[in-house]
Nucleic acid binder design. Structure first.
Lengths: 174, 174
DNA sequence: GTCTATAATTTGATAGAC
DNA sequence: GTCTATCAAATTATAGAC
């Protein structure tokens, strides 16, 4: 029996670091050297896991969406709005982090297309899960209004450095 | 009598170009060289008008806020929500531009403090004008919800490349 | 997988002539 | 005001040894 490998999981650590940076300050606010230093390797080694920054950006966005969607999927439609709200609120409480795809969307005019596509995928899936044809679901138009308010409320919390701003802005939700 | 100078107004042109870039892709997505080329001067000349990029960023944010606030101020409180909505909608229709301070807010964790302060000033003034103690005004908490929805709706329009997304997301407003 | 070394380019910024 | 020339630093990325 092969002894279980103690994997370094550097790819995962690099994505963690990149996600943190993007959610704090955007796609153009970090370099491979910074990520490398945080993970404890050299920047040339980052290219081993992610050939280009575009590859890394797309991978991070994809993982973010998959993770977010998984949380929503295991809930019934009637409580998904609350689940979204909770996820966004907790993001802010974690070092004032924004929604990854919200940040990327606001920068998207100069973003590689493959990254922009991942951003769109995030919102497509969220809107779909909020407006499923089941009990407790809302219309697609209502779902648009909900996601808009959540993204904006997170932004305001960041501006004012207070969850209170998020809570007050989203009071009407659910 | 001095002959009227035909001013080049390069400072204004540089701010225009910088604002366009920030609203499309963020603070870190443009360089002095790019701006210079667009205005038709050299990058070293940009430093004559704005010694550092921080100075330029702060000036652009300040001008944006002053301009936005001026439009709201000349309206009565009862129609200011509609005026905000119209301004944001028209921003999107202009090459899919975001709210300058919305973009900067999402990048603000790595932004010079003087720029972050201008961003906060924008939201302070907007919230103040929407919740003035006059007929037609809303509470400050309601104003937070309105600004949040507008910022998020603009983001969604960008994601989907369609004003329709903005219109549907903001249908509940006013 | 991780490193050293390095290339090629871009960046924000300065000095100083005109 | 605008330019040329230049700098130091940072960036993404590659080649090749171990």
């Amino acid at each position: 029996m092969a002894r279980p490998r103690l994997k370094s999981n550097n790819a995962g650590k690099l994505m963690d670091a990149a996600e943190r940076h993007i959610r704090q300050s955007g796609y153009n606010a970090f370099s491979f050297r910074e990520l490398a230093k945080e993970v404890g390797i050299k920047s040339s080694s980052v290219h081993y896991y992610f050939p280009t920054k575009v590859d890394l950006g797309a991978a991070v966005a994809r993982r973010y969406t998959d993770r977010f969607v998984a949380v929503l999927q295991e809930k019934s439609p009637s409580v998904r709005i609350q689940a979204c709200k909770k996820a966004f609120r907790e993001a802010y409480l974690t070092d004032g982090q924004m929604c990854l795809c919200g940040v990327l969307a606001s920068e998207s005019a100069a973003l590689p297309e493959v990254v922009a596509l991942e951003v769109r995928r995030f919102f497509d899936l969220c809107l779909g899960l909020l407006s499923e044809r089941k009990e407790g679901a809302v219309t697609r138009k209502e779902a648009l209004g909900i996601m808009a308010k959540l993204e904006g409320a997170l932004l305001l919390a960041r501006v004012y450095g207070a969850v209170q701003a998020f809570d007050e802005a989203t009071r009407s939700l659910q």
